[in-house]
Design a protein around this nucleic acid. Structure first.
Lengths: 345, 345
DNA sequence: CTGAAAGCGCTAACAC
DNA sequence: GTGTTAGCGCTTTCAG
């Protein structure tokens, strides 16, 4: 049909439901119902109203809708940063995870609200929840917030956290089998005949602690004594980690293999080695963790523990929606896999 | 002070301003003003009210606030996908750009609403705008939507687009100097004595078209005749691009250099070459575009045209906020830089 | 089947 | 300085 109402159209850009109602010659409620596809309204009228709305570019105002419905159709994706207020979202792991989550959430016709938060002051999570901007929350990493998360989880159900499964944990967590990952990596390095295997990375955050535990387990199984002198604390960024490894190469104990907390740190190690005139795997066999996009294409290609982030993201979003529906869904431990490439053999 | 109001606290989780008002023994308006830091309220009272709110974990409901203020404190970041409804947000360029934008937007205390949209049906952009979920929009890439963007831009100002500067463009665009980038890359390849330089990538999207134009310009300057047989259309993903290049290697014209639309496609080419028993730069000198995280660490490291995404993101967000403030800020052409690494020399 | 009216939680103009 | 009140634009009872 052509449009008999064109003259009545108010200025483009701030249409509301009342305008559409006037154009259609019906009440606001009828428009609301029609636009919601409510079968109470006869199909002909419904189509007519939808048509008018479309012609005029009218779309329901989401703030108003959310207020009325107490529901935003939005999932908050939160990147908790423990330190460094100025830190950028640039880590390949976070970026890939954000992408995967966005895909999963979009697929369910929800929006993604991206939230980078510095978790310095208590109550940061409550503040996000109480602002009511999202119907559910995904946290990428538990950072140093295990206790805070437990507290919040007691009263706020629609939340899922990527990270380690911890004893006494009351929040829903999805994460890789970090212990097994560490064990696999070290077992592999030991099988190459390496005896002095270093651990590269922090050991305080839960996931790191678990990978470190797996590292020690792997050593024990290989009959190698754990040597604290081979534990090298490093930052998470490539540049900073490289500095740390370089310093260790210059002044630390000698080593012939290294298991790094992440692929980024593993690459940092390879960079430090090559700067020091050494090579991987010649002088030092290197293994990482993640199997991110870098691992496959680096020189040499990286031996690593693969985390399946597509699986992880899907699991988190699945669980979240089930929790949003009232179910008390529990967490998931995702399997890991050893990927052997040139950096260790 | 300790808390004399604890008994009055309603069930945690659905506090509203009226509750805080009751606890503080003042009216709702006073609470609203106090929480907004309005100096009309004496500092002592203000602090008292803030304290009560904090103790009880109260935070202003953003849906209500947005509805009343017609303002969301949110920026929509849109990833327009021209094809493939199932396509993932996994391209390193998009991911890095999203990260940079998120940093810039967060820095201004705005939230980021991430939006992956399939731009098949007309009006997709109007729908996003009219839903009033964001105060401004950043589109990552103009995709095939140049005309649509022009139309929208006439009535909707707070929008900035990453992409090519095009003739007759009425929307605000920020993008790299693609023509110059293409020219620099080809000039460099020609300077290595290469004569048969292929172009790898699509040539339809505006940015690709400009890089292609630069490619032809570079050829002309080097006195090399343009040969359409050396133009290889490839998809954007690494896997698909690699298949395309492999096919060209098997059946296409011979070539001794390649300029790829992106680093991802350049890596795909290197992969295809090595599968075919050839090498870069030995048999084919390869140059990419982006200088993403892969380029530095690949084997061989990638010669490429560097786009400064941190700069681009900052510029887009700057311009967006100026446009949101009513200014009619114009776009920016970002400089590019040739980075020579092992894949071409 | 359709409309009138109440109210989601907040801010700000307007009184006092 | 502070409170009362009128909406912001929508959905949904409740009446008809």
């Amino acid at each position: 049909m052509d449009n008999p109402d064109i003259a009545e159209a108010p200025e483009r850009g701030r249409l509301k439901m009342a305008d559409i109602a006037r154009m259609a010659g019906v009440s606001i409620s009828t428009v609301s119902r029609a636009l919601a596809g409510n079968p109470l309204i006869p199909k002909t009228l419904r189509d007519q109203i939808v048509e008018i709305a479309q012609t005029h570019g009218y779309v329901v105002n989401q703030s108003a809708r959310s207020l009325r419905l107490r529901k935003t159709d939005t999932i908050g994706v939160i990147i908790p940063l423990a330190h460094e207020a100025g830190q950028l979202i640039s880590d390949p792991f976070f970026l890939e995870m954000v992408g995967r989550l966005a895909d999963e959430i979009t697929r369910r016709n929800y929006s993604v609200l991206l939230n980078k938060v510095i978790v310095t002051e208590a109550g940061w999570l409550d503040r996000i929840i109480q602002s009511h901007r999202a119907d559910g929350l995904v946290l990428i990493g538990q950072s140093t917030q295990h206790t805070a998360l437990n507290t919040v989880a007691d009263s706020y159900k629609p939340m899922v956290v990527w990270g380690a499964q911890l004893p006494g944990q009351r929040y829903c967590a999805v994460g890789s089998d970090n212990v097994e990952g560490g064990r696999l990596a070290v077992t592999h390095l030991a099988a190459q005949g390496r005896k002095r295997i270093a651990f590269l990375g922090a050991v305080d955050a839960p996931e790191a602690a678990q990978r470190f535990e797996g590292y020690k387990k792997g050593l024990a199984e290989a009959g190698i004594a754990f040597d604290p002198a081979l534990v090298v604390p490093t930052p998470y960024t490539l540049e900073d980690a490289q500095v740390a490894v370089a310093a260790f190469l210059a002044e630390g104990a000698p080593f012939d293999a290294a298991f790094a907390f992440s692929d980024v740190i593993a690459l940092a190690a390879i960079g430090a080695l090559s700067e020091a005139g050494k090579s991987a795997p010649g002088d030092v066999a290197v293994g990482g963790f993640d199997d991110n996009v870098l691992a496959r294409h680096s020189a040499p290609p990286l031996t690593t523990i693969r985390q399946d982030l597509a699986f992880g993201a899907r699991a988190m979003v699945d669980l979240l929606f089930r929790r949003m529906a009232g179910e008390d869904a529990a967490g998931v431990l995702a399997p890991v896999e050893l990927i052997v490439r040139g950096s260790s053999v």
